[in-house]
């Protein structure tokens, strides 16, 4: 079965009395090991869609299977665990916890699985080396550059070895050079067998992915 299998997804927001539809009857599937870019202009519903893929928001109707689990039938309590084990989030604005240093930020998903911090730290050393963060472990997020912050965020998403990596505008806040570095990292990570779904409004960014899906008028087009 596909890693992501979505059928007839609908999602809208209520604006006063009126319902504003954002996703209209969307079908979407991603196979294991794929690297997909979802491309669309601002306000087209990309973040809304990602929140649904990431099990952070509920859809109005439709079926969603993630790695074989029927998400549309799962309660919030269990969704917490699914987010922790199956999904690695990479946010546009990094979303690092400012009071924790790099190491503490990276091991958070492992701690939530009940690991001790010693075990968690040992386990993420490889990822940290891969992302070149060895020298920055004691730093707080506000002592890092944008590119470094995004690498911390990627490391955090990777350590849990999730079923999919979800990235919302991962290069949005970065300059071109750091942006390119991050995209190169994504390709490498994908080569290593990770499934990636990346969201962007930038065609040149989308082109680094193996497959591009456009979101137009609440519908997906290959």
């Amino acid at each position: 079965m596909a890693m992501i299998e979505m059928r007839g997804i609908n999602k809208g927001y209520m604006l006063g009395e009126e319902r504003l539809p954002i996703l209209k009857n969307v079908d979407f599937s991603v196979e294991k090991g794929e690297y997909v870019a979802i491309l669309g202009p601002s306000g087209s519903g990309k973040t809304t869609f990602m929140n649904i893929i990431g099990c952070m928001d509920v859809m109005d109707s439709g079926e969603y299977y993630l790695d074989g689990v029927a998400i549309h039938e799962t309660k919030e309590r269990d969704l917490t665990e699914i987010r922790n084990k199956k999904i690695g989030f990479i946010f546009q604005n990094y979303q690092l916890i400012p009071t924790y240093n790099v190491m503490q930020n990276i091991i958070m998903p492992l701690l939530m699985r009940g690991m001790s911090h010693q075990d968690a730290e040992a386990r993420c050393m490889e990822t940290i080396r891969l992302l070149g963060l060895d020298q920055r472990l004691e730093h707080k997020p506000n002592e890092l550059s944008g590119g470094q912050k995004q690498r911390v965020s990627i490391a955090r998403a990777l350590v849990g070895q999730p079923a999919i990596l979800l990235a919302d505008e991962p290069t949005g806040a970065l300059d071109q050079t750091s942006g390119k570095e991050v995209l190169k990292l994504f390709s490498e990570i994908n080569e290593m067998g990770n499934t990636i779904v990346m969201i962007t409004h930038d065609l040149s960014v989308a082109k680094t992915a193996k497959r591009i899906v456009r979101i137009v008028d609440g519908q997906l087009m290959e």
Partner: peptide, 16 residues
Amino acid sequence: TNEIGILKALGCSRKD
């Protein structure tokens, strides 16, 4: 709130 959002996104349970 934002930190709580991050924790929740990363899969931190209500209990924790």
